[in-house]
């Protein structure tokens, strides 16, 4: 902070500080500097249910459909009904049942919150990349998918706060968990003896569930208890990790796993399906390298793969080698 700016702050504080919470006697730390209006405008993106914070601009349901198909449908499904990722539509009336479906239509209480969330956190691979008009439009489209607004709806800073969400009255405060001195809703007693008439196991994991889902749990634990002087020699210490990051780490690092998995189709094909398709092809490495670097359309479905500049050539070669080897787990 420059000196003149400090003086301005001090004068401002002296003139306007009365009634505000400058702690009496607190040191003047002179740390930080005034944030400019322009700086604040760039980061001040939050939107409240009353519409405070909504930017200028507007977007229609029709425009939103184009945005949705380009950026959202791959994960959320054509009609917002994806079971793979979070569903955006459906489930109205299900919240009282044993199988509640929590969607924009069934649970969300404010259309402004939908705008705020898309604007800050979506699209998942590259958030904060849509223009305000695109966010308004896709917000309108998702509301329309839920039959909350008509097909000719245009979202803007005036219309969005006025949208009546089906579950707008579905929330309640609970001081028992929002205030430190709130009154709890459970009332166990610290009984010490003969507290239960009978004790029966009412729930347990199904037979073979653990073995099927987790394999052996042995390596989830420290093995120290088995060490003693009579123990027979056991296998050597498992090999330590190789020097460079292996392909499984690289596909995490470069976000490949947002759209691909080893053994099932997500948005893009399963790596093992790619391996099967290219098995025995002499130009497999070159073809896949081109597809990753330049992007690819229409080979595995309608969703295009964007060009990927992230991995170095050596890393990409390693990833492709790993994919063609059938994407082994280790």
């Amino acid at each position: 902070m420059c000196r003149s700016e400090r003086i301005r702050c001090a004068v401002f504080a002296a003139l306007c500080g009365a009634g505000l919470a400058q702690a009496a006697g607190a040191p003047d730390y002179r740390l930080g500097r005034a944030a400019t209006a322009q700086e604040i405008a760039g980061w001040d993106i939050d939107v409240r249910p009353d519409g405070a914070g909504l930017p200028p601009g507007s977007g229609s349901v029709a425009d939103g459909e184009k945005v949705y198909e380009a950026h959202c449908s791959a994960c959320h499904g054509t009609f917002g009904d994806s079971n793979e990722y979070i569903a955006l539509a459906g489930g109205v009336g299900s919240l009282k049942t044993d199988a509640p479906v929590r969607t924009v239509g069934s649970k969300l209480n404010a259309a402004t919150t939908l705008f705020d969330y898309i604007n800050r956190a979506m699209p998942f691979p590259h958030s904060k990349s849509l223009t305000p008009g695109e966010v308004y439009a896709v917000t309108a489209y998702v509301l329309n998918l839920n039959d909350i607004v008509p097909a000719d709806f245009v979202a803007d800073r005036a219309s969005l706060p006025a949208v009546k969400m089906p579950n707008r009255d579905g929330y309640e405060p609970f001081p028992g968990l929002s205030k430190v001195d709130g009154k709890p809703d459970t009332h166990n007693r610290a009984c010490m003896h003969d507290c239960e008439k009978s004790v029966a196991v009412t729930g347990s994991l199904p037979p073979n569930f653990v073995a099927g889902m987790y394999g052996s749990l042995d390596d989830n634990f420290r093995g120290l208890a088995t060490m003693n002087e009579q123990a027979p020699p056991a296998g050597a210490l498992p090999a330590t990790t190789a020097a460079g990051p292996a392909a499984p780490a690289l596909i995490q690092k470069y976000g490949c796993v947002a759209c691909h998995s080893a053994d099932r189709k997500i948005v893009g094909p399963a790596f093992r399906d790619v391996a099967a398709k290219f098995k025995g092809h002499a130009d497999a490495v070159a073809t896949l390298t081109r597809a990753v670097r330049g992007g690819s359309t229409g080979v595995w479905g309608s969703v295009p793969m964007p060009p990927q500049a992230g991995p170095t050539d050596a890393e990409l070669a390693g990833i492709i080698e790993w994919i063609l080897a059938g994407a082994p787990d280790k």
């Binding site: 042995d218 390596d219 093995g223 056991a234």
Partner: peptide
């Protein structure tokens, strides 16, 4: 079974 149990720990060489 013993070998599997051992896999979690690192047994001692006499």
């Amino acid at each position: 079974a013993l070998g599997e149990a051992r896999a979690a720990g690192y047994a001692a060489d006499p």
